[in-house]
Amino acid sequence: MSKITEQSDITLHFELALNDGQVVDSTFEKSPAQFSYGDGSLLPSFEEMLIGLEEGQEASFNMSPEKAFGMRNPNNIQRMPRSQFAIDIEEGMIVSFADVGKNELPGVIASIEDNEVEVDFNHPLSGRDLVFRVKVLKIGPSE
């Protein structure tokens, strides 16, 4: 039986959930995910958990914030002038910004005051313990 290696093409179902069971993302009710190990589809720490799994095998992994999306960084929370926003905004809304290199950078509106808006650029799952569940459907050698 083939096992996942760093040279594998992988087809699997996955679920990402918070410790309280709230599902953040899942392919179990949709088409499975297909990717080549190391192609950037999954975070490296998530891929490492897959090494050695066999076709048909199911597994569940507890992922600490350090292994998942990192710890929350207070430096990623920025205060901006309210006048910089040409759209109607609400707390919790995700707004797209462009960084210096013109890359899209999503930020969550954390708070709105008369003259200032606080925007949180941390990944929404940063600082969270997660449960990563997989069912390996197919393993093949990468081309």
Rank of each mutant, 00 (worst) to 15 (best):
I139Q: 00
A68W: 02
Q22F: 15
E15Q: 13
L53W: 05
M93N: 14
P106N: 09
P32S: 08
G52H: 04
I77K: 14
K3E: 10
Q84I: 13
V24W: 12
I77N: 09
E6A: 12
S36W: 03
D129R: 11
S26G: 11
P32R: 01
G101C: 05
G101K: 03
N75K: 15
F85V: 01
A110L: 13
D99V: 00
V119M: 03
S111D: 15
E143P: 08
V24K: 06
V119K: 01
L53M: 14
D120T: 04
V117N: 01
N62Y: 11
L42D: 01
S26P: 04
G21S: 05
P81W: 11
P141R: 11
K67F: 10
R79V: 14
Q84K: 14
E104C: 01
L130E: 03
S60Q: 12
L53G: 03
L130H: 07
M93P: 02
R79Y: 13
V117Q: 02
Q34A: 12
R72I: 11
S31C: 10
N62S: 13
F28A: 03
E48F: 13
G107E: 02
L18G: 10
F97Y: 04
P65M: 07
V95I: 14
P124E: 09
Q22V: 15
S111M: 11
V108W: 05
L16E: 06
G107I: 00
E15A: 07
L125Q: 13
E91H: 09
N75G: 12
K138V: 00
L105W: 02
S126G: 09
D114H: 12
P124Y: 08
E113N: 13
V136I: 14
L42M: 08
L16N: 06
N103F: 00
G52F: 09
P124H: 10
M71V: 15
V119S: 03
R128N: 12
F35V: 00
N122Y: 05
T11R: 00
Q78G: 04
N115L: 15
D25K: 15
M93K: 10
E143G: 06
D114S: 13
M93V: 10
F132A: 02
G140T: 03
F97P: 01
G38C: 06
A17Q: 10
E66I: 14
M80E: 07
L18V: 10
F61V: 07
K67P: 05
E29K: 13
L43M: 11
A59G: 06
F35M: 02
E143C: 08
Q34P: 04
M1T: 09
G40P: 02
S26M: 04
D39I: 08
K135G: 02
N62C: 10
N73W: 08
E113R: 15
P81I: 07
E91Y: 06
V108H: 04
M80H: 08
I87A: 05
D20L: 07
Q57A: 08
M1A: 13
K67C: 07
M49G: 05
E48K: 15
F61Y: 09
P74K: 11
R82V: 11
E116F: 09
G56I: 06
K102G: 00
D25E: 11
D129N: 15
N75A: 14
E54A: 13
T5E: 09
I109N: 04
L12G: 00
A110E: 12
E47C: 06
